[in-house]
Design a protein around this nucleic acid. Structure first.
Lengths: 221, 221
DNA sequence: CGGCTGATGACTGTTGACACTCGGCCGGCC
DNA sequence: GGCCGGCCGAGTGTCAACAGTCATCAGCCG
């Protein structure tokens, strides 16, 4: 007995699946910043009840993907250039802590190895914008995870929503974001050398560059 | 006409009021870490329906005050000593960014003034543990706000839940937390001098001390 | 013409009921 | 005795219906 064709069933709740579906749709750009998400329409489209959709929407609101609009409605978050810059400053601070953690950790060598593999995956994604974003974020998340600080990972994840919305919603014209493997290599190099100050410096300029690219050309508001 | 006795009505939804009530109860220690929060019981106690309670509970889950337990139930988050230490490392990184922001900002003088007033309020709270916690967190939040980085404030707020649960749930025996005004003064002093490195150093040791106090005596798990 | 007043449609807020799952208990059957 | 089965009880998951709120607009009246 025990046929191998029987795999474990999907135990996720409708709420979780709706959450995932909505998040994916938003991050894929199917809804643009400022778009309104109505409970009734989504419930009909997903084939589930309004209450369940509602829970998923509230979750996304706390994730920072949605913001309250007039009359209790929700819409996709649109970050101002200032917020984008602030966002990337916070990222720099968090990933700075991650770098320090990795350098101080016992398994630094293996961590460097894993980071290098992430860079290879990043390189392979060249050409496909979505895949590149995926690989880029995966690299930075890996950096946090390798620090061994679970609260840091949780905090970083909390910023992931706004980051993705921002990155995905830039116009096609200036998608020359600093996501190439070459841009990330100096970070890994500095970690390998155990050069914390150098890594921080590289990281900070990396973030500043991305922020400038995403926030738009020079305007200060 | 226009009698001044008519004030604006309370426009908050039931969900928001339930959320506030539950958060307050948890942070007041009315529910201890590990306690189970059942929808039916809470709905009955608050006099509202389960669905509404549910939304509030999910919100608190995302805030980090509640964590999933067996069979989809929720219970008050109990942070391990390791998590406490990690939490305070992240805090140090974030508030380090805040300090840098305040020092770099144009209104540094006025910021220092506001921080000094917060210290005075902290001093006045001496003796009353709950008030002291309140004043202490208010000081640190103010620090973030004065940096002018709204994303930083949002991120810090995201950690506020776990911080409060941890601080409030320590036994009475070792409530000698480094919350006195004297402990915070060096931070403000360094900011006033524009000494970023010094401020970071003070901040880091401040956090390390608090983490050690909260995480318990020396155990490493 | 200008302002007030209802009707209307499109939403979200809230609720009570029903469905389902899980763990524990108990009784019968080998 | 040990095990298998079904039967609770306590939870959460999901839903459909009802209620309330708000912006809009047509119509009325001064």
């Amino acid at each position: 007995m025990a046929p191998e064709t029987l795999s474990s069933l999907d135990r996720s709740t409708l709420r979780e699946r709706a959450l995932h579906a909505l998040r994916t749709a938003i991050l894929a750009g199917q809804y643009r910043p400022g778009d309104h998400l109505g409970e009734v329409e989504l419930a009909g489209r997903l084939g589930i009840s309004r209450g369940t959709v509602r829970e998923a929407l509230r979750h996304l609101q706390q994730e920072g993907l949605l913001v309250p609009a007039a009359r209790g409605m929700l819409q996709v978050h649109r970050l101002s250039p200032t917020e984008v810059r602030e966002l990337y400053e916070v990222r720099a601070a968090l990933e700075g802590l991650a770098v320090a953690g990795v350098i101080a950790s016992a398994g630094r060598e293996q961590a460097v190895e894993e980071l290098r593999q992430a860079l290879i995956r990043l390189d392979r994604a060249a050409g496909d914008f979505a895949a590149q974003v995926e690989a880029d974020l995966a690299f930075h998340l890996l950096l946090c995870e390798l620090s061994g600080n679970s609260m840091l990972v949780r905090t970083w994840r909390h910023l992931e929503g706004p980051i993705r919305v921002t990155v995905m919603s830039v116009g096609d014209e200036r998608r020359r974001l600093p996501m190439s493997a070459a841009r990330h290599e100096p970070i890994v190099d500095a970690v390998e050398r155990g050069d914390e100050a150098g890594a921080l410096e590289v990281l900070r300029s990396h973030m500043a560059l991305a922020a400038a690219q995403l926030a738009g050309p020079g305007d200060q508001n």
